[in-house]
Design a protein around this nucleic acid. Structure first.
Length: 216
DNA sequence: ACATTAATTGTGT
DNA sequence: ACACAATTAATGT
């Protein structure tokens, strides 16, 4: 147990360095629990109720919305240093989640209980800033997603999608299938394959089975 | 090491 | 969009 707290303290220091004031930092360590979620885990599902909110230490999570015909809309990603501020509101007003969060790459996170989160909002300025910032970031990403849907052609969207993955994974080598991409971008696999082929011919990427390499 | 099978990717209509 | 061919990875013998 003591070891656990030590671990949390360490992890928080690495990913959330100097974001929180000292008192708050100590409280977070005291109230939180450490979790690991393997790829494929569903962190939060549509209709689910939240009791904790996560602070992401490592890995990343894909947040999406599913509509009537089982179609999924990709909304945004949670990266290390992020929290899901949207789920935070769900916590406070006890409403159910509109979104689903799927772990795309093994996640380490710190879970915080809802009750405390509300207290801290009043007590700590750095916490307020953190939550509002988080909200702002989510909004910016959603606006960007809408812009991209409305104005960009599919080939540009595809490239952006790849570039974004490169960014969050800190690696130019992506291990992903054409089908997965097609699902996220709402097209067929064949279209993605063809566009990727064109990108390869242009020298923008290198293709392999289950892997795509962005060229610098 | 080889054959079999399943999954992924490529291409023409 | 569909069908099918080709290629590659995974698994068992």
């Amino acid at each position: 147990m003591e070891n656990d707290k030590k671990l949390i303290r360490e992890k928080l220091n690495n990913s959330f360095a100097k974001v929180f004031e000292q008192d708050l930092f100590n409280e977070i360590v005291k109230m939180s629990t450490y979790h690991k979620c393997p790829k494929g885990d569903i962190l939060i599902d549509i209709g689910g109720k939240m009791t904790h909110i996560p602070l992401i230490i490592s890995g990343f999570v894909k947040i999406m919305r599913e509509d009537q015909n089982k179609d999924e809309i990709l909304l945004y990603f949670l990266e290390p240093g992020d929290t899901c501020a949207i789920s935070f509101i769900n916590c406070i007003n006890q409403s159910k989640s509109m979104f689903r969060g799927i772990v795309e790459k093994d996640v380490e996170c710190i879970m915080l209980p809802v009750e405390k989160i509300e207290d801290w909002l009043i007590k700590y300025k750095t916490w307020r800033v953190f939550i509002i910032d988080s909200y702002h970031n989510r909004l910016v990403e959603m606006v960007e997603a809408i812009r991209s849907l409305a104005f960009l052609k599919l080939d540009d969207r595809l490239y952006k999608y790849l570039a974004n993955h490169v960014k969050v994974l800190h690696s130019k080598n992506l291990s992903i299938t054409h089908q997965d991409i097609a699902d996220d971008l709402h097209t067929s696999r064949v279209v993605i394959s063809r566009l990727l082929k064109i990108l390869e011919k242009k020298g923008k990427i290198k293709l392999g089975r289950k892997r795509i390499k962005l060229t610098p």
